Amino acid sequence: MTTAIRSQVIPVSDLEAAKAVYTALLGAPHTDQPYYVGYNVGGFEVALAPGDVQGGPVAYVDVDDLDGTRETLLAAGATERTAPQQVAPGARVCVLLDKDGNAIGLRGK
């Protein structure tokens, strides 16, 4: 299994307010859409997305086999917070939780 953490998605309740703060910190975003604002920070993706802020930011691990990795983690005791969903051509994501409720994001095909 090849894995790498290459992105963090930060849920925000007010995208415009969050964008002002993160743009002041990280510079202009490379993607600025109503559903996603993305910044490239030295090759690491920091993204803002409108959503439920209760779960906090999620670091996404890039994996070769999203379904296989998901099944392995579920068998090891993780639980599912969000089922796999298509977010871009050739890219799917899901979020699992460890036994303490910490989020584990998976991104793959």
Score class of each variant (00 low, 15 high):
residue 91 A to D: 08
residue 94 C to W: 01
residue 33 Q to M: 15
residue 85 Q to E: 15
residue 9 V to R: 00
residue 44 F to S: 08
residue 14 D to L: 12
residue 38 G to R: 06
residue 24 A to V: 10
residue 89 P to V: 05
residue 7 S to K: 10
residue 12 V to D: 04
residue 27 G to C: 03
residue 77 G to D: 04
residue 73 L to K: 00
residue 49 A to I: 13
residue 11 P to Q: 02
residue 98 D to Q: 05
residue 14 D to R: 05
residue 33 Q to T: 15
residue 33 Q to I: 12
residue 5 I to E: 06
residue 9 V to M: 00
residue 102 N to W: 10
residue 48 L to I: 13
residue 5 I to D: 00
residue 67 D to V: 13
residue 21 V to M: 09
residue 78 A to Q: 00
residue 28 A to R: 13
residue 44 F to K: 08
residue 89 P to I: 06
residue 47 A to V: 07
residue 51 G to S: 05
residue 61 V to Q: 12
residue 100 D to P: 10
residue 41 V to E: 03
residue 10 I to T: 13
residue 28 A to Q: 14
residue 100 D to M: 14
residue 30 H to F: 07
residue 86 Q to A: 12
residue 32 D to S: 07
residue 27 G to Q: 04
residue 5 I to N: 04
residue 87 V to T: 04
residue 92 R to M: 12
residue 30 H to E: 08
residue 2 T to Y: 13
residue 71 E to M: 13
residue 18 A to G: 00
residue 45 E to D: 12
residue 72 T to F: 09
residue 18 A to I: 08
residue 67 D to P: 10
residue 90 G to T: 02
residue 70 R to Q: 11
residue 104 I to C: 00
residue 104 I to Y: 00
residue 91 A to H: 10
residue 68 G to C: 04
residue 54 Q to E: 14
residue 29 P to A: 05
residue 82 T to V: 14
residue 23 T to V: 07
residue 24 A to G: 12
residue 102 N to K: 09
residue 39 Y to A: 01
residue 95 V to D: 02
residue 105 G to E: 01
residue 31 T to Y: 03
residue 86 Q to H: 10
residue 22 Y to P: 08
residue 93 V to Y: 01
residue 59 A to Q: 13
residue 39 Y to K: 13
residue 34 P to L: 11
residue 11 P to A: 00
residue 80 E to S: 04
residue 103 A to Q: 06
residue 93 V to S: 02
residue 20 A to P: 07
residue 77 G to P: 07
residue 73 L to V: 12
residue 80 E to R: 07
residue 30 H to A: 06
residue 2 T to N: 11
residue 80 E to N: 03
residue 76 A to Q: 04
residue 35 Y to I: 12
residue 55 G to I: 08
residue 30 H to L: 11
residue 76 A to R: 04
residue 74 L to S: 03
residue 57 P to S: 05
residue 40 N to A: 09
residue 26 L to P: 05
residue 78 A to I: 10
residue 17 A to Y: 01
residue 99 K to R: 15
residue 64 D to W: 01
residue 16 E to R: 13
residue 85 Q to N: 11
residue 68 G to Y: 01
residue 98 D to F: 06
residue 43 G to E: 02
residue 21 V to N: 03
residue 58 V to C: 00
residue 11 P to M: 02
residue 42 G to I: 15
residue 75 A to G: 02
residue 15 L to Q: 03
residue 1 M to L: 07
residue 49 A to L: 11
residue 108 G to M: 11
residue 106 L to D: 09
residue 40 N to S: 09
residue 6 R to L: 14
residue 37 V to Y: 04
residue 48 L to H: 05
residue 99 K to L: 14
residue 3 T to Y: 07
residue 59 A to P: 09
residue 42 G to Q: 08
residue 96 L to V: 04
residue 22 Y to D: 09
